[in-house]
Amino acid sequence: MNYPVLDQKDTRSGFGAGLLELGDTNPDVVALCADLTGSLKMDAFQKKYPERFFQVGIAEANMMGVAAGLTIGGKIPFTGTFANFSTGRVYDQIRQSIAYAGKNVKICASHAGLTLGEDGATHQILEDIGLMRMLPGMTVIVPCDYNQTKQATKAIAAHDGPCYLRFGRPKWPVFIPNDLPFEIGKAQVLVPGTDVTVIACGHLVWHALQAAEELVGSGISAEVINMHTIKPLDADAVVASAGRTGCVVTCEEHNRHGGLGDAVAQVLTSRKPVPQEFVAVNDTFGESGTPDELLRKYGLYPSDIVNAARRALSRK
């Protein structure tokens, strides 16, 4: 299966486009931002629907509580700030006022992971997927490109319950066809294969596709799964694919602890024990650099996925 590059766009712009469409179609959708309206691409919504947009200033804890309160009047609030300030900085506010209280807040987080780039480790959160998936009732979604981020933004508005939507800063290949259906909690087998399963989320889905092409050249058939929903995880898809191939590689722009890899490992150990290799940041903080330099240095390149696949195959 072939995925031509349709465009180069940032996933955050997919969020902005999706939010604007929601503004047009759903009068209950409101948006809040903590002084990063341009970075989050929320300015179009702000301009068109100023009465439904709340600039809260650099006060993320307050933003989470205000969003929770807005749900009580029947609103569907979308909060926007960087992933670091969307999770770690406001964990207790999310835990008590949103997750435990069961409020229908959509926490939308940009500039996640290493690909934030030059701003460095203070802003490159690599722990947010873990933080969010530990919260009971939280849906965690990490879409892979512009098109899918736009789809996911619209999908979480229709989903009743708290959601965490993680996306990023850099321009990135757009390769998901607009007509590929997006369903929360339903994995997408982008490339069928027989020798090794490569499960990825976010930006690394593109790297997984590239790795699969390279593996074909060595006579290795890799199945590539886009696991855009980390929670609830599509466990049946993991088990079915592992049954077909007998080994798994997980790929994420996140610490190897707490993220997609751990979620998949929980499924495999209990339902289909097969070798698993982890392509993830190896329990360290990031640093300043270009996104490409950082992905290479921290082991998230297509070649790293190829090597992990070979290791997994050798352990079968």
């Binding site: 205000v66 929770a68 309160g69 807005l70 009580i72 009047g73 207790d92 008590q96 435990y100």
Partner: peptide, 25 residues
């Protein structure tokens, strides 16, 4: 009861959200 509380300092933010929603409604 419309909100969980216990971890302190969060209720005013929630009330602001509810008050904004009342104005919108």
């Amino acid at each position: 009861v419309r909100m969980a509380s216990g971890s302190l300092g969060q209720g005013l933010s929630v009330a602001i959200g509810a008050a904004l929603a009342k104005k919108l409604n």
